[in-house]
Design a protein around this nucleic acid. Structure first.
Length: 539
RNA sequence: GCCGCUAUCGUCUAACGGUUAGGACACAGGAUUCUCAAUCCUGCAAUCGGGGUUCGAUUCCCCGUAGCGGUACCA
């Protein structure tokens, strides 16, 4: 056991350069001047180079809850693991989130820049701050240096497993917690690497109650692990950075992924030892995926749809993705949506206590349906703008077509878009390419002709095309158009459906298309005649 | 292994301790002056198992089972 004086001496030995006190730090982070009900929330991802759809989900929840309470949302970057860090990782996060309309009031706005008075918002730039708190804890005997090597730790774990004990650095296994000052000095002089560990005083036998904003009341065991606070490279662990950053930044509620739930006892002890006011927690369940009858976390390695890029590249409308995510968060969103079709998504009020506390399966079918419904609400001009925006980044050929034929393309997008029966077959902007290809001779020529000869005999097809070419008039209205088809069917003794099908394939090469009359109107006289002629020759 | 959380149609979920257990997506069938999409109608389909408490349990309690999370000098 070290004396109080020895602990102070130890703290100075460990952190000779740290001269600031905890009070010095606090003076730079004044209390926020905000209304009582305002929530200050932070979303704190790591720049690992992969944007998970779950990141958008949690980020969305944070920004929403903050906004609807007139509070503040903060984007903080947790880059304390140098191993996993990736170049341009911060930009990927910021842009990925922004692409889905998830923007924060404070924090990082690009690779380097953070806005707000409570920064820095990148943890690697806050190292000096963590050291001040670590030094204070060591000087009070609440933390200590530990010289256990990775190998030694491994041996300890094996021994614990052999005797089927809980693994980890706690109690008698935490060899350095009560080391004498001279022992420590000796190692320090040899320049041995060390970490700073919490001197835990919790007892695993004791339970305590906490109220989770999402899960409700739960009872947990106290923490007794001497968790690492500062790694040997000088970076803090998440556990240590979390109470410090959240307290300094004036966070009011910690909304985070469920994977942190198990660490709550540790965090409680840390808040206490740091002498901070405990922040309330809300643990949000992760998005799951079903495979072979089992549920598991949506995984970035196995599931392409886990990546945000999956949706961006295919041109999923961000509003659709957002609606789907909102629907998972609060299932009453759907009812609200049907009753408030005209309202902005921003008007929906998320209720944290309504979050489901089991993980929801990510259902791409439902997402597709929501996106389809969303695109159906857009005007042809809006569809044009959005498809173009998508194509400019992901399909330059289509972008060129769109730009060079704006009016024509808008007419194409307008097919079956007006009136009460709006066509709903576009899930994502990428799907537009397929629709467009019918209307341009270059892409049409390349398309494969669907064979309908087993439904309509080739001779009959020939006659239909030949006869129809004679009577076709672009100026016909809808009734006249159908009238001619019916008459022709009667004359050739076949079904009107067969006539329509032959014309459909002649004009589009396909058996499944939007309304044929409207297609003809948009194509115009010349193209129709050309194609009828070409089809006749091909028979 | 240990610790914790969770459990209603295939999926997301609703149901003061009293409902024919509701809705949406998906699926199947039918209707719609042409195919598909859409739309409308119809149908299919669930309270994990076992004990309690209660007049009565999807709901409360216990046990089991399963799933998920954690058990790092990763977040």
């Amino acid at each position: 056991m070290r004396t109080n004086e020895e602990n102070v001496e130890l703290a100075n030995l460990l952190f000779p350069d740290v001269t600031d006190t905890v009070d010095d730090i606090f003076s730079k982070y004044p209390k926020r001047n905000i209304p009582d009900e305002a929530m200050v929330l932070r979303f704190a991802p790591s720049p690992t180079g992969f944007m998970h759809i779950g990141n958008v989900y949690t980020g969305l929840i944070c920004t929403r809850l903050a906004k609807q309470s007139n509070g503040i949302s903060i984007l903080r970057i947790e880059d304390t693991d140098k191993e996993r860090e990736v170049e341009k990782g911060v930009s990927m996060i910021v842009n990925g989130l922004r692409g889905f309309g998830v923007v924060f009031d404070e924090g990082m706005v690009d690779e380097e820049v953070g806005v707000g008075a409570y920064g820095p918002y990148i943890q690697s730039q806050r190292l000096e701050i963590y050291k001040v708190f670590a030094k204070q804890m060591v000087s009070k005997g609440l933390a200590y240096p530990c010289f256990l090597t990775l190998d030694e730790l491994e041996n300890i774990r094996e021994e614990q497993e052999k005797s089927s004990l809980r693994t980890g650095c706690y109690g008698k296994w935490a060899k350095w917690r009560d080391a004498s000052l001279s022992e420590i000095k000796e190692r320090l002089e040899k320049k041995e690497k060390f970490v700073i560990r919490l001197y835990s005083t919790g007892n695993i036998e004791n339970s305590f109650a906490m109220k989770d904003l999402v899960k409700g009341g739960v009872t947990l065991r106290e923490n007794d692990m001497d968790a690492v606070l500062i790694k040997s490279d000088g970076f803090p662990t998440y556990h240590f950075a979390h109470p410090i950053d959240d307290t300094l930044m004036g966070i009011t509620h910690v909304i985070r992924g469920d994977e942190w739930f198990s660490s709550v006892p540790l965090h409680y002890e840390l808040f206490e030892k740091l002498d901070f006011k405990q922040l309330p927690y809300g643990h949000v369940s992760p998005l799951m995926k079903s495979e072979e009858g089992k549920k598991r976390k949506l995984s970035k390695r196995k599931d392409p749809e886990a990546a945000v890029s999956y949706y961006v590249e295919r041109g999923y409308p961000k509003e659709g993705v957002l609606e789907y995510l909102l629907n998972i968060a609060n299932s009453n969103f759907y009812d609200w949506r049907v009753q408030n079709k005209e309202r902005s998504l921003d008007e929906f009020r998320l209720r944290i206590e309504k979050f489901n506390n089991a993980g929801a399966l990510f259902d791409i079918t439902k997402l597709n349906d929501i996106c389809k419904e969303y695109i159906a609400t857009l005007s042809a001009e809006e569809v044009y703008e959005r498809v173009l925006e998508w194509a400019l980044s992901f399909d330059t050929d289509t972008a060129k077509v769109l730009e060079e034929n704006k009016d024509y393309c808008i007419k194409i997008f307008n097919i079956e878009r007006e009136g009460s029966k709006v066509r709903k077959d576009m899930v994502k902007y990428q799907d537009a390419k397929d629709l467009l290809s019918i209307f341009f001779n270059s892409t049409f020529a390349e398309s494969e002709v669907e064979d309908i000869s087993d439904r309509v005999d080739k001779n009959l097809q020939e006659k239909i095309v030949e006869e129809y070419t004679k009577i076709f008039d672009i100026a016909d209205n809808l009734d006249m158009w159908f009238g001619k088809i019916k008459n022709l069917a009667e004359k050739l003794e076949c079904k009107p459906g067969d006539v329509a099908m032959v014309l459909r394939v002649a004009l589009t090469h396909r058996t499944k298309t939007p309304d044929l009359y409207q297609i003809v109107q948009v194509m115009g006289n010349n193209i129709v005649e050309e194609r009828l002629e070409a089809y006749a020759k091909s028979l």
